[in-house]
Design a protein around this nucleic acid. Structure first.
Length: 187
DNA sequence: AGGATGATGGACT
DNA sequence: GTCCATCATCCTA
């Protein structure tokens, strides 16, 4: 049995990332379900990528990225937010995909409660994890396990094209176009 | 609409 | 001590 997502995530992150657009990131946390359709992701390629947390090799912090594809890597960003990646590629390489933004398919009321506002709910990596209730405790779980409290599921393919642009918020390898965004509307 | 800034913790030099 | 794969808020226009 091999899932579509497992096949996608088995490859290099710059190939897998655009194919993750449209997939669903689902959480069952605190007795509530939230389902978000991914619209923005970024690829990070381990030791080949100066912008990657895994650039200098495996550490306690980034070890989830070195595990099987589909392993959830959660890290604290700027001391305040949590950000979520999925490991990609074969174990040991430290490749990953940062899940940055999406649209709420189900559980919007839950998200409004968690975010404490009604707008700008899931348009950034820190916001996305807060919307889903993902925290550091969830680091290392298997996103491809249907029984996992946080998981990836296949979703509708992108309506439009997927655009590749430079990644956001990094200071090195700024020129590599490994940010992938669904081109939703014209313009 | 867009630029500046403070919050805040862990990894790294 | 410095650097962040960020966000919300507070300015100026």
């Amino acid at each position: 049995m091999s899932s579509v997502l497992r096949d996608i995530l088995s490859g290099p992150p710059e190939d897998a990332a655009p194919r993750l657009i449209g997939a669903h990131l689902v959480s069952d946390i605190g007795d509530k379900q939230v389902r978000i359709r991914l619209t923005e992701v970024e690829a990070y390629k381990g030791s080949d990528d100066p912008a990657s947390h895994a650039y200098r090799g495996e550490t306690i912090r980034n070890s989830s990225m070195f595990k099987d594809p589909g392993t959830l890597y959660v890290y604290r960003s700027y001391g305040i937010h949590w950000c979520a990646n999925t490991a990609a590629g074969p174990p040991g390489v430290g490749w990953g995909i940062l899940m940055r933004a999406g649209e709420i398919i189900d559980g919007k009321g839950v998200v409004i409660g968690r975010r404490g506002r009604r707008d700008s709910l899931t348009d950034g990596p820190g916001k996305l994890t807060q919307a889903l209730g993902i925290i550091g405790d969830h680091n290392g779980l298997d996103l491809l396990d249907p029984a996992s409290v946080v998981r990836l599921e296949p979703g509708a393919a992108p309506a439009g094209l997927v655009m590749a642009t430079p990644r956001v918020g990094i200071s090195r390898a700024k020129d590599i176009p490994w940010r992938f965004v669904e081109a939703t509307s014209v313009g």
